Every structure is written in C-alpha cells, then in structure tokens.
Computed example of a mutant assay.
Amino acid sequence: MTPEQIKLVQESFARVAPDAEEASQVFYTRLFEQAPEVRPLFKGDMRDQGKKLMAMLATVVQGLNDLDALMPAIRALAVRHNDYKVEPAHYDHVGAALLWTFEQALGDAFTAETRKAWSEAYGVLAGAMIAASAEAR
C-alpha cells in the first residue's frame, strides 16, 4: 500500500469510528443479506461481535504503517477463524460488506480513491489470513 492509501484508510476509519456500534450493525446486516450461509457461524451476542470487529479494524488500520509488526496478530486471528469454520470464499463476502458499510457511512466522502485504498488494505489482510488459515490446517 502507498502512504497515500494508508492515510485515506486511516482518515476514513477515524470518521466512522465514533459510530462504531452502528457501523458494525450495518456491516452484519449487509453481510447476512448478501451471504446468509455465514449467519450460523456467529454464535454469540452480535453487539459483542460488532465491538470485536471494530476493535480489530482499529488495530489493523493503525498497523498499516508497519505490516510486518501486524502480521503475527493477523495470523493468529486466521487460525482462530479455522475453529469457527470460516472458508476462503467467506472473505469475499466480508470484504464486499465492509466496503458497502464504509460507503454508506461516508457518503460522498467515500471517493474512488478511498474505495481503492480500502480494497487494497482488505486484500492484504484477507490474503494473509487465507494463507495462514491454510497453513494451519
């Protein structure tokens, strides 16, 4: 990722973070609409799940400046996702729901450049998780 892309991701996340609970609800609503087959993978309270999602996003967004330092946490997360029966195809659904959520939250501020930056960031994250998940199996 370029420094400009990292900045776009961090700035756009900072605009959404104050409404983290709402953003996570929008995200999961969209995810379950688009991929109802993933709904059974979520067993706990969705509010708690939303808090975990937003906390992990905050960690990732802040860690984009040093991906090498971030990767051990990402790999550990991927291994935990194996226990939840997450499949590689699920990452596409999550990415689409994430981009849609930011588009809804940011409106016109979710520019083509911001979308591309988020796509790149998510691609790095998802790629690392899919690889780590496969390696752990």
Results as ranks from 00 to 15, higher is better:
Met1Trp: 04
Met1Cys: 06
Met1Ile: 08
Thr2Ala: 11
Pro3Gln: 11
Gln5Val: 02
Gln10Phe: 00
Glu11Gln: 15
Ser12Asn: 10
Ser12Cys: 08
Ala17Glu: 15
Pro18His: 04
Asp19Thr: 08
Ala20Gln: 04
Ser24Ala: 15
Gln25Ala: 14
Tyr28Ile: 04
Thr29Glu: 12
Gln34Ile: 14
Gln34Val: 12
Ala35Gly: 02
Ala35His: 05
Ala35Leu: 09
Pro36Val: 12
Pro36Asp: 02
Pro36His: 01
Arg39Gly: 00
Lys43Gly: 09
Gly44Val: 04
Gly50Ala: 04
Lys52Ser: 05
Lys52Thr: 13
Met54Trp: 06
Ala55Trp: 05
Ala58Gly: 13
Ala58Val: 02
Val60Asn: 01
Gly63Tyr: 01
Asn65Ser: 12
Asp66Trp: 07
Leu67Glu: 11
Leu70Pro: 15
Met71Tyr: 05
Ala73Asn: 12
Leu77Thr: 10
Ala78Lys: 10
Ala78Gly: 14
Val79Cys: 02
Arg80Ser: 10
Arg80Val: 08
Arg80Thr: 13
Asn82Asp: 08
Lys85Trp: 04
Lys85Leu: 09
Val86Thr: 09
Val86Pro: 07
Pro88Ala: 05
Ala89Met: 10
His93Leu: 03
Val94Thr: 14
Val94Phe: 14
Gly95Ile: 00
Ala96Ile: 10
Ala96Glu: 13
Trp100Tyr: 13
Trp100Thr: 15
Glu103Ser: 13
Ala105Asp: 08
Leu106Arg: 10
Leu106Met: 10
Phe110Ser: 11
Glu113Ile: 01
Glu113His: 00
Thr114Val: 15
Arg115His: 13
Lys116Gly: 13
Ser119Leu: 07
Gly123Val: 10
Val124Gln: 09
Val124Ile: 15
Met129Gly: 11
Ala132Asn: 13
Ala134Cys: 02
Arg137Trp: 12
